[in-house]
Design a binder for these strands. Sequence first.
DNA 1: CTGTTAGCGCCTTCAT
DNA 2: ATGAAGGCGCTAACAG
Lengths: 340, 340
Amino acid sequence: MTRRKASATYTDIQRITGLSLATISKYYNGGNVLEANREAIKAASESLGFRLNRNASALRRGATRTIGVLLPSLHSQFHVSIVAVAEQFLRAHGYSVLLASDEGGPLGRSRDALELLLGRQVDGIITMPSHSDVPALTGVIESGIPVVAIDLWQPGLNADFVCLDNRGAGWLAGQHLVDHGHESVGVIVGDFAISTMKERYEGFAAAVPAAIPPELVQTGPLTSEWGHEAMNRILSQRPRPTAVFAANYDLTLGAVIAINESGLRLGQDISLIGFDGIELARVTQPTLTIVAQPVADLAHEAARTMHERLEGNRSAPSEPSMTRLAGSLVVGGSVATLRA
Amino acid sequence: MTRRKASATYTDIQRITGLSLATISKYYNGGNVLEANREAIKAASESLGFRLNRNASALRRGATRTIGVLLPSLHSQFHVSIVAVAEQFLRAHGYSVLLASDEGGPLGRSRDALELLLGRQVDGIITMPSHSDVPALTGVIESGIPVVAIDLWQPGLNADFVCLDNRGAGWLAGQHLVDHGHESVGVIVGDFAISTMKERYEGFAAAVPAAIPPELVQTGPLTSEWGHEAMNRILSQRPRPTAVFAANYDLTLGAVIAINESGLRLGQDISLIGFDGIELARVTQPTLTIVAQPVADLAHEAARTMHERLEGNRSAPSEPSMTRLAGSLVVGGSVATLRA
DNA sequence: CTGTTAGCGCCTTCAT
DNA sequence: ATGAAGGCGCTAACAG
């Protein structure tokens, strides 16, 4: 019967030191306390193994110093890095991270996750919003709880926003292919209803002089299965394009596998420029040329934005901010140089 | 001046319905309430946008229904999947996950992270303990807060424990090489002070008939850099072993890169059996044969164990449990079949 | 089935 | 610089 040992409270310290609760509270919250009393409190606290109950102080203060991070999934490295970096930044500033994902639930189940965070009285929410989240998140913002959205732009959502310069990233990929003499190019991309996919495609297309024929633009779900299938479709075209751009990590993964299976030589018979997956890019042969997203910077920026909303000048509500970070090209050996 | 809009409380519902706080509380906690009153409360609650303040009820009840997850890092897929799966399971059972990692801090900084979790009054802690965490975690356990350790065995830690059958996993790798006729084999592994590394090596060695000469056992830090360096060292041996086992994901990553750079053909000139990294294994050419850890099962088991400790039969404290899950061989094309 | 009462542990006026 | 008192929002006896 290992009952939880009741932890020490101010009252216990009071019993030892004879000081009032108010003084003890001041000690813990940076108020003025006589040196002698400070030491008495410190000694008592240590002998008791006292630990401030942050839940109780949160109740009293009306602020938990906890940030909710709400993500659709935690199985991609991208999503997860966001949590990792945000947690690190926020903890350094005295905040905790409460996690909620939608994993496995039916669509729209993120309301549950959101309810959980709100019920726990988080002071703010960092999220990758889906379209269906917009109404609920709008309510949250209106109730005065700041929301920082990452990655996906959702029209109508009045939140601070941090994202990749997707158009620029797509353009980098297109320009790299053009620079290497590629004229007939294919694209494997997600549904254009997803803001990132539309923008990456637009940027890519803007860099390529000739219009890309529809049969070389394969849109579908953001899965490696689709990347695989889409690459097979592109490879079966005649004439075959000389290069392909895969606009997301999973699509890239599937595309590489399809090329390997096809017997074509990557970077010789077919060029590929991928997206994200810096580790994946190092183990293919030849190594993969990719556009890399500054994931850590994105997450850091989101956490910083949240922190500023919470501790910045409260009298100036200011407009929602919008931060765009640039992607970068990581050159491997998967893009051949063509000569005219 | 967007002050946080005060959220509705029981008192507001009371004002509308005329019912007492106790009745309203019962409504939210599954007590007996007259149907008419249930409806009145429901209606009032909805019109107010009421949401139960779980922090306040936690304070009152002495239980937060929050589990702390304490990890040394969140940048590996392994660690992260643990969070993902545990969160999913625990949320389904009414628990939240509070995250804390040690990222970037000096060694022993996990005390901060642990303090943060305890200050937030978590009901339990799931962790991958480092050696230096043992004293602090022991204190936690003694105070009656259950701890479930994953992956790393730390002597002296009296917690429930969930891990891979590392010896068996190593054995699988060794046996696979033996089955394919390999007699001279190398191993890239981490420091034997790490329980998983020692056990994987022992299992591997047990499956291989001949003793493995010391120059073919490369121990070092668990990084891709070391995997790379270690593979280069092994490849420079004369005679060269015909196969190598890399005992962890990062080591495998580095080993693959080294082989690619060496000009040797994977699965022909040199065989490799890796560890984890199911995605990585699919994009190499040929695909990689690996021993895969059932990460999701491990995390699920840890979460289940925690849940049982918290809600199981409290009168039977029972001994710490120990759960070992088997790894599995994922056969790719990186192990050549040798004939005598 | 419902209401009254008394806190959980802490912070914050307001006196002193 | 310190103390006394009240209450954050909720739950758990205990009466009725």
